[in-house]
Design a protein around this nucleic acid. Structure first.
Lengths: 149, 149
DNA sequence: GCTGGACTTGACGTCGGTGTCAAGGCATAC
DNA sequence: GTATGCCTTGACACCGACGTCAAGTCCAGC
């Protein structure tokens, strides 16, 4: 099959396929007229790449999987190098999860805090200012809580 | 204070400060020689921006907080617009957390799966193959992941 | 006066995975 | 012949928050 069909079957674009080839992840025979020619193995390979990309892998990280498939293995994750990438990625994701959880808790805390004082600002706001201060006081900015970092 | 000092105190770079100014988030008086001149309020403002950025906010999303501070409020999240951004961000983060969790579970599943069949690849591969085996041992499967990165 | 550091504006580079345009070759259908 | 559509390579655009370089200005110290 040619590049357009492969792109359709793999749910991506011809641009992406050429990009993968450009980076050595995909290779194509050429027919007499110079058009790229692919087979079912290439389709599986592209699907492997796409799957990993949508999971959050970088293109470069899909390389071990691709080479694993190329070397004749049934699945791209049947090789130690792929498993190693899996491990690294799992660690990354778990770390990210941890940090995101911290952020989430922080956001929740801020929200519940501001929910408490919500009435201080939601009185008459209509247009000109994001939040005109209803309190006549607090003209000096120096008396505040220091760095929230 | 001038831009270098502000950058140091806020833990960022002069380039970033000029960038914020370029995007209307920061403004500076100019001294006679044309240098930017800042005060403590600007420092607080930059710290607000930096804090939000490191949490994962986009620069544009810090604008309501900045304007809230500018309009005289004690804290940048004292205004409805800021709270609204908090809400949106919390939703985003929670959604991201959900998806990341799916990915994590997927990765874990793949890892435990490939751990089971690990010997299917560790047979004869030596060099030209990504599937090379470093050690005849390494029998510990799901016990502890060393993650040597 | 001279050196050096901090400042100014302007502009290009970065990273990743594409989108998109340009200009042309080739093939099938009418 | 020509219209249509897929293919080719090449190259620029994009997003965001800056890094970094260039060339010039300003000021304090010696």
């Amino acid at each position: 099959m040619r590049i357009g069909e492969l792109a359709r079957k793999a749910g991506t674009s011809t641009r992406s396929l050429r990009y993968y080839e450009e980076h050595g992840l995909l290779s194509a025979r050429r027919s007499a007229n110079g058009h790229r020619e692919y087979d079912e193995a290439d389709l599986r390979l592209v699907r492997e790449i796409r799957g990993l990309l949508t999971i959050g892998f970088a293109l470069e990280e899909t390389r071990p999987f691709v080479e694993c498939l190329r070397s004749g293995h049934e699945s791209g994750d049947a090789c130690p190098a792929s498993v190693e990438v899996y491990r690294r990625k799992l660690a990354e994701v778990e770390d990210y999860l941890t940090r995101l959880t911290v952020v989430r808790d922080h956001l929740r805390a801020q929200l519940s805090k501001t929910d408490d004082q919500e009435e201080s600002c939601t009185a008459l706001q209509l247009y000109p200012d994001p939040c005109r201060v209803p309190e006549p006081s607090s003209p000096s900015p120096t008396t505040s809580s220091p760095t929230p970092s």
